[in-house]
Nucleic acid binder design. Sequence first.
DNA 1: ACCGGGATGTTCT
DNA 2: GAACATCCCGGTG
Length: 207
Amino acid sequence: MNPVSREFYRRDPREVAPELLNKLVVRGDRVGRIVEVEAYVGAIDAGSHAFRGMTPRNATMFGPPGHLYVYFTYGMHWCANAVCGDDGEGLAVLLRALEPVDGLDEMRAARGVKAVRDRDLCSGPAKLAQAFGIDGQFDGADIVTGDRGVLICDDGMAPPSKPGQSARIGLAAGKGHEHPWRWFVTGNPHVSRGVPGKPPTPKRRPR
DNA sequence: ACCGGGATGTTCT
DNA sequence: GAACATCCCGGTG
C-alpha cells in the first residue's frame, strides 16, 4: 500500500477533508474507501471538541498530524478522526462513511447486528469504527507509519473534482451547525443517512 | 418512507 | 444534571 504522507495532514482540515475522499482506510484485510468526511476547526469552531482547549479526552487532537483521534460518545459508540494541522492546533477530520472494498465478512462479524446490507456496514462514523474494530485503544495511532495496524492509503484514485458539500451532521444550534464543512462523494450509496441541521432530539432516561 | 423511543456512559457545566 | 460529532429496532403510512 501507499500511505498518505504526514505533510498531507499538516494543513487546514477544510483543505484536507475533501482530498481524503476516495482514499482508503486499511486495517489488515479490511479496506474501505472514504466517501464522507467532516472538518473540525479547533478554536474557531464551536462544534469541535477542541473549541474550549485541551482536556485529557481531546489531547490527541492537539498532538502531531497523521494520527487517529478516537473518542467515545453516546455511551456506546467510538468515532475516528485524522488529526490535521500542526502540533498544538487542535484540528481534525472526522471519518463519517466508507464504501467497503475488501474484508466485508470481517466487517460484518465486527458489526454484530443482524441482516446488515453492504451499505449498512460503514455508512456512519460509529459504524465504520465498529466495522474496523477501532476503539479507544487506537486513540493516538499513527496512520502514516501504521504503528497499530491502521493506515490511510492512496491507490491512485483522485478525489472527486466536485464533491458534495453541506453543513455537518448531528450538531445542535449554536454549535457550529451552520458551517458547510461536510464533504461527500455525490451519489455514493455508502454515504451516511444523516440530515444536516437535524440534531438528535434530546432524550430523557427513565428513573 | 418516516418517525419515535431506548440503549449506554463519559464529559463538562 | 444535561449534553453528547450515534445507532438500532419496531411502529405506522
